[in-house]
Design a protein around this nucleic acid. Structure first.
Lengths: 198, 198
DNA sequence: CACCAAAAGTGCAACGGGTCAACTTAGTGG
DNA sequence: CCACTAAGTTGACCCGTTGCACTTTTGGTG
């Protein structure tokens, strides 16, 4: 997965980082996000708060490790799609195949619950996605051969990146994702009431 | 516009509130958002920080007065549109007629600049818009006669509300808005390079 | 008019997130 | 083995924000 550190130094560094992240997640799940202070976490991981902030940019970053990966995957999904497949199709399947499994199950029960029930974390999570707008937009633009900040391409990127927020608490996430991609492909039109059974 | 306060009490209250807001904006424009502390503002307005926070929910709220109005206008634009006009058309014209003039000119030069160049304010501003997703989505859903949290309707609402963020720093905002509405109406397709002149 | 309850405002202390500067420790590499 | 450098520590500090106990104002009511 990620290249493992070689020197003793980097191993120790990685270890501390991990210790902090573990302690944080444990305490958060145990007592709730905002009843746990940075100092608590630092103590539990047996480091100073300054050290903690050298590893993580802020309190929210303790729970959302890893957004770098997502951006790369997204761009790749566009760039390295099968020949003849449209950009939208590639994105649709990337979302369905990659995001949904993670959201649905990966022992994420408590985790999702934690994020979902903490406004600060929800907000941070949403912004995390939309921060990739520029990169994804640029990748799409490059693919179709227009300016890297072409409005249509950037807008499409943003809309796709809103999908997690829009489908978060749906009973049937798959259907919701499909519906949204249908809008993006064919345009929006008033959804009819589901026809009553005759 | 807003009903003017009658009692001496409410007049004074409104006055202090205004004094705070004025002091804040002045200091922000003069020294930059994050070089001005809450204490500075409170001092300048000659109140205590406690009082300040009884009038404004947080530091960002000092610069963004008034988002309530926007939500109502939006919902109205959908509900009270001319007969025979589609929802999307109503929204498109509401955005073009109501939002653009405000964004373009209203002595907003420095103000926009301030918001734009301060990450905290950008973030707050964007969330301000998307917070109306549910209401606008529900209005649309009601109009077409489906569940108030129908995915397609909520998605459309969100996409429309992203428009300010997506068009903020475009040279030609009008064109950008039109492009985005075209996507929402007819679906996205790869924009061709502008045809080179023959 | 006098009086009282409630609202507006004050002062102060405290908390939690986050930063800074000077210092110690301990791998790294020559 | 020694000098260099990155990781970590310490302690003080700023800032946004909240709670608490207290004073002032003001509107209404008997």
């Amino acid at each position: 997965m990620t290249d493992l550190p070689v020197g003793r130094r980097e191993r120790k560094k990685a270890a501390t980082r991990q210790a902090i992240a573990d302690a944080a997640l444990r305490l958060f799940l145990e007592h709730g996000y905002d009843r746990v202070s940075i100092r608590d976490i630092a103590d539990a991981a047996d480091v100073s708060t300054t050290t903690l902030f050298k590893h993580f940019a802020g309190k929210e970053a303790l729970v959302f490790d890893e957004d770098q990966a997502r951006e790369a995957e997204l761009v790749a999904a566009v760039r390295e799609r099968d020949a003849g497949r449209s950009i939208l199709d590639a994105l649709r399947h990337h979302v369905l195949d990659t995001w949904l499994p993670v959201a649905e199950h990966a022992q994420a029960g408590e985790f999702n619950n934690l994020v979902n029930s903490t406004p600060a974390l929800r907000a941070y999570g949403e912004r995390m996605w939309t921060r990739h707008t520029a990169s994804l937009g640029a990748a799409i633009a490059e693919d179709v051969g227009v300016d890297h900040d072409d409005v249509a391409c950037v807008a499409l990127a943003r809309f796709v990146l809103e999908i997690p927020a829009l489908t978060r608490d749906r009973r049937n996430r798959t259907a919701a994702v499909e519906t949204i991609f249908d809008i993006l492909e064919q345009g929006w039109e008033p959804p009819g009431k589901p026809a009553p059974r005759p």
